[in-house]
């Protein structure tokens, strides 16, 4: 699209085009990987951590990291932040090594952990000021803005805050230095839906301003709403790396049929059909493949009702996990 319109304008605006080309080349160069993870492995004694995790996060992208509890999301994030050290493999952020250049990298990272803990005897204001003092810029204005958006009372003691309010402190302290990379580890726990909404709007805004976001979650609707690409992690390994749009692409159909007579359990057990559930007159399944084959199959049996839906991410995800488990067995 962009190419076409640029070509079109070539005749009209010769000089402007040059600038545009230069800009677009520059943009292309700028669109480097903010995070590059190569074969990252972390083992804790005999317990599993993560093994051989590799992925890249591009500049300006919202990258989702999904998987159930204990799959290795936090381990990966904590390794990136050099809170823990990898057993093998390496990773870079902004092109710098996560271990060697950790302090330099962290200047431009905002991190929000799933559970936030702060110095309890401090006031919110003092904690945020302490947090800001690590960054060599004036964060006072942004701090007030964020506190206002998140409806956070700066004069209260950390000790007296509820879980949700502590989380708000976390959000403000994670964003007050306007980081280029925002790392969120299951960030929404403890926030009420209203605040969650505001928080997501805030993230979208930061993203528009150019911030890259790495977002770990086990709540798929969050990921679906925010992310461009996702990595699905299971038992310490990345099992799928996909664009959200591809993941949701039409290759899966959720089909519901009601027949006039009871049909055999195996009637729809054809290639491409998964998650087949036959309950007397009702049949549910997911289908992937040439839609004509299943349509022909349906046409040969009298039906009273049919529904064809796009499955949501949740279903794809569950389906994916179950399939993996089936393979293992």
């Amino acid at each position: 699209m962009v190419k076409n319109s640029m070509l079109g304008s070539e005749e009209k605006y010769g000089n402007t085009l040059k600038v545009l080309v230069v800009l677009s080349i520059k943009r292309g160069v700028d669109k480097m990987n903010v995070i590059e993870v190569k074969n990252l492995t972390k083992t804790y004694g005999k317990a599993r951590g993560i093994s051989d995790v590799s992925f890249n996060v591009e500049q300006g992208e919202v990258f989702g990291f999904i998987g159930p509890n204990g799959a290795g999301k936090s381990t990966t994030i904590r390794t990136l932040l050099s809170l823990i050290h990898p057993t093998s493999g390496s990773a870079t952020i902004f092109g710098k090594d996560i271990i060697k250049d950790s302090p330099a990298i962290k200047k431009d990272i905002g991190y929000l952990p799933s559970e936030v803990f702060y110095y309890e005897n401090m006031r919110v204001k003092d904690l945020l000021k302490y947090s800001a003092s690590f960054y060599k810029k004036d964060c006072g204005k942004r701090m007030k803005e964020l506190a206002k958006i998140m409806e956070l009372d700066l004069n209260r003691k950390i000790d007296d805050l509820s879980l949700g309010n502590k989380k708000k402190v976390g959000i403000v302290q994670g964003l007050l230095h306007e980081p280029k990379l925002i790392i969120l580890d299951e960030p929404t726990s403890g926030l009420d839906p209203l605040m969650q909404h505001k928080f997501f709007e805030l993230l979208e805004e930061e993203n528009k301003k150019g911030a890259t976001i790495l977002f770990s979650s086990h709540i798929l609707s969050e990921v679906q709403r925010l992310c461009d690409r996702v990595a699905i992690i299971k038992e310490g390994k990345i099992i799928k790396l996909e664009k959200i749009s591809t993941l949701k692409e039409n290759n899966y159909k959720k089909i519901h049929i009601e027949t006039t007579t009871e049909i055999g359990k195996d009637y729809f057990a054809i290639e491409g059909v998964t998650d087949l559930v036959v309950d007397r007159h009702k049949v549910d399944f997911l289908f992937k493949g040439d839609i004509n084959t299943v349509m022909k199959k349906i046409a040969t049996t009298p039906i009273v009702n049919i529904g064809v839906e796009e499955p949501d991410l949740e279903e794809i995800f569950m389906h994916f996990y179950e399939k993996e488990e089936a393979y293992e067995q």
Binding site: L81, L83, S102, K106, Y111, V116, F117, Y119, S131
Partner: peptide, 17 residues
Amino acid sequence: RDKTADFLLTKPVSRVT
């Protein structure tokens, strides 16, 4: 102990500092 390591150690300072 106070679980504030995630706060302090993700700031742009080295552990030596």
